[in-house]
Structure formats: structure tokens, C-alpha cells
Amino acid sequence: MHLLEVKNLHVEVDGKKILNGLDLSIGSGSVHALMGPNGSGKSTLAHVLAGKADYVVTQGEVLLDGEDILALPPEERAAKGLFLAFQYPLEIPGVATMTFLRTALNAQRKQRGEDELSTPEFLKRVRAVAGKLGIEQEMLRRGVNVGFSGGEKKRNEILQMALLQPRLCVLDETDSGLDIDALKIVADGVNALRSPERAFIVITHYQRLLNYIVPDVVHVLSRGRIVKTGDKELALDLEATGYAQYQEEMA
């Protein structure tokens, strides 16, 4: 069984069709890159998977471990192992990053019927992953993402991912706004999490990120459907030729 199966997914936002019969199957242990021009539906897919309101699924299914998750609220999907790394991580003044991490981790554990983590165990885990990502303890005491640079916000997303240990990670344009050093730190963080029990959907405009997070499969999305699937060479071809040919194919 695939970890994730998206079948004939049709999605509207404000009455406008964004996804038009999208099919996607992802097996555990693999990294899929999702590329495509602006407006092709990449971020919509990410948000629909995570369960954002205002996205109306008119047809199709999304199965996680064979279970349809479309009727589940976002928090239950998260507890089942789905993680969306936001393109624009939000700032939450007044909620310390530590409190946020701990509340999230324990809420997920509770939903899965697991015990809450003890404070020392929690701190140990946070310190371990924060250290690898170069996140200072001082940042963890601040409000979530408050006063963080673009790169720090993205690193904080990876920190959350590393701590929550999801099975399906959706990275929505994680490379946007990052300089090359920050990009490497983020990519290293992602690569460290690659495992046979986990899969990734890496959404990006640019091939550059895929030099650092090397995908097993590359999909091209256009007008709400996957129009081409290949290996990592496909991303290099796209870098050379652009997306125009795929948009014309649809026209």
C-alpha cells in the first residue's frame, strides 16, 4: 500500500477550479519533487493535504495509509503523521516557541494515545535537533517566529518537523527567500530525516533546491494536473527549457 494516494482530486477556491483530477501516489521512503509554474496548483495541493478551510474538494480522495483523510480536521491529520512546512511561516507573538513545540508534540501524542513527554525528555529532544539546525536557545524562548529572519523561520519549520517526526512531509517552497547558506542548512535538516519510514513532497519552482535534496521522482504540475513524471533529470531539463511547453500542451 502507498503511504499517500491522491485520486482524481478536484478542488475549488472561491468557485475557481484549481486542481483538475490530480493523481499522485507516494511510497514510504521516497522523495517526490513537485514542480510547476505559478498558479499550477502546487500550494493548493499542499494546503488541501493539510486540511486548510476554504478549499472545496468537489471530487476525488486523499488516502493516507489507505484511510481517507479529507473529512478529518487538520490536527488529526497532523497526529496521523502529516506535516506541512509553510512557505510563509506565521509569527505568533506571546506564544513562546518552546510552549508551541511542547503543546504540539503533546497534543499529537495524546491523540495517538501516547503519554506526554516529561520535561527533561522534551528539552533533550529539542536541544538535540535545535543544535543540528543552528537554532539558539534564546530563539526558542521568543514568540514563535517573532523577529526571525526568513532563513530562521524556515529552519524553525524544519525544527518542528524533526521534533514531530511525521511520516509524510510536505515542503511548500521551502527554498523561497533563502540564500545559499540557509538553503544548505535546511536541506541538510531534511536529508537527515530521510528514512524508509518517511516520505517527502518537495514543492519548488526551481531546480536549485533539488541539488541539495535529491528527489527520487519529479512531477510537473500544470493547470491542476500532473502532466509529466520523471526522475531527477526531469528537473534539470525544466531548468533548461522552462515550463512553457507544458502549459502549451494543456492549451
Binding site: 487538520p74 490536527e75 506541512l84 506565521l90 505568533i92 506571546g94 506564544v95
Partner: peptide, 28 residues
């Protein structure tokens, strides 16, 4: 609503997410 979604997407149930934001609001 965007903040609430962010919290829920991390596994925090709606009521708990609301409480966290309200507490932060008053906390200031």
C-alpha cells in the same frame, strides 16, 4: 484564522489552539 490553521496543522486541537492565542493576547 491563518494563525489557528498554523497551530492546528501542528496537531493542536481547535479549542486548545484558540486558548493558546487568547492567552497570548491577554499575556501582553
Amino acid at each position: 484564522q491563518e494563525l489557528l490553521f498554523y497551530l492546528k496543522a501542528r496537531g493542536i486541537p481547535a479549542k486548545e489552539a484558540e486558548a493558546l492565542l487568547i492567552q497570548a493576547f491577554v499575556g501582553e
